[in-house]
């Protein structure tokens, strides 16, 4: 297969970037999107140019490193799929494909298609943990968790923290990411003790890092490679309000 690629090239975080057009030929329809970029890089090196810089790690769709906006959609046109699991057979032969990095103020471009996603780590640091002693495993079945709750928490925990929700949101909001973490931990007994503190801290960090707000349009859910539902955002909104009300009535120390 042959493609015309319009790829974002940016030397470093302070340089101005631009879309550069490359032709690529004889790509196997079974190659993944990242393998196609590998071929592009090899071609560039042969021509004595800088290879493409893009994030990847596992290439199995579970690490959350790949971060490509393909034709205006984070992770490309296939739903529930990371860019590394996206195969070239989903594109038309001869198609022009535009590849851009995630765009958000908290995600500055480091080089080409690589952005700095550490603000997501800061959100986790502020509340994405439990205070239970986790050194040794407890006996099985000491905490009975019903199937519905376990499934719900597991679905929320599927978040790989790639940031596609931020990239897809017209407001660059990190609500889906933050609320997936909150819903995951707040719905399980291990995470209950710091439930309210967590909701307050993570929203506060999220706002402080410069992410936008949620307008409930659902683009994040549609772009999420793990199909995390908007339900978790409603969950966070609920827990956040309850936490604020409890905080308000709590006598100050």
């Amino acid at each position: 297969m042959n493609f015309t690629l319009r790829v974002w090239r940016q030397k470093d975080s302070v340089s101005r970037g631009e879309l550069v057009e490359y032709k690529i030929q004889d790509v196997s329809e079974d190659s993944s999107f990242l393998e196609m970029l590998d071929i592009l890089s090899e071609n560039l090196v042969e021509d004595g140019k800088m290879p493409m810089a893009f994030d990847y790690d596992c290439r199995e769709g579970i690490c959350g490193m790949c971060s490509l906006t393909i034709d205006g959609i984070p992770h490309g046109p296939e739903s529930g799929t990371t860019a590394c699991q996206l195969h070239m057979r989903h594109f038309k032969d001869g198609q022009t494909i535009t590849i851009e990095p995630w765009r958000a103020k908290p995600f500055p471009v480091v080089k080409d298609l690589i952005v700095d996603r550490s603000p997501l780590d800061k959100i986790i640091q502020s509340g994405g943990f439990i205070t239970t002693r986790a050194g040794s495993a407890t006996d099985a079945n000491t905490h009975l968790i019903d199937k519905g709750t376990a499934d719900y928490a597991m679905d929320a925990a599927a978040c790989i923290g790639c940031g596609a929700c931020v990239a897809a949101c017209p407001n660059a909001s990190a609500m889906l990411f933050t609320s997936a973490k909150v819903a995951h931990m707040n719905s399980l007994p291990q995470g209950k003790p710091e439930k309210h503190r967590r909701a307050l801290a993570m929203v506060s960090t999220m706002d402080g890092e410069g992410f936008g707000g949620c307008t409930n349009i659902g683009e994040c859910e549609a772009a999420c490679p793990k199909n995390i539902s908007l339900d978790v955002i409603a969950h966070l909104n609920r827990d956040y309000a309850i936490a604020q009300v409890k905080n308000f009535f709590k006598p100050s120390a």
């Binding site: 319009r6 879309l19 906006t69 034709d71 205006g72 959609i73 739903s79 535009t98 851009e100 765009r103 958000a104 103020k105 908290p106 897809a168 017209p170 407001n171 660059a172 909001s173 410069g210 992410f211 936008g212 707000g213 307008t215 409930n216 349009i217 659902g218 683009e219 549609a222 772009a223």
Partner: peptide, 26 residues
């Protein structure tokens, strides 16, 4: 909120398409 949201993405995409958002929501 709109002003905050604008600030959150100073540099937009050259090519962007809505995946499923309704006309009314946008």
């Amino acid at each position: 909120l709109t002003l905050d949201n604008r600030k959150a993405r100073p540099q937009g995409y050259q090519k962007k398409q809505a995946i499923q958002a309704t006309y009314s929501s946008r």
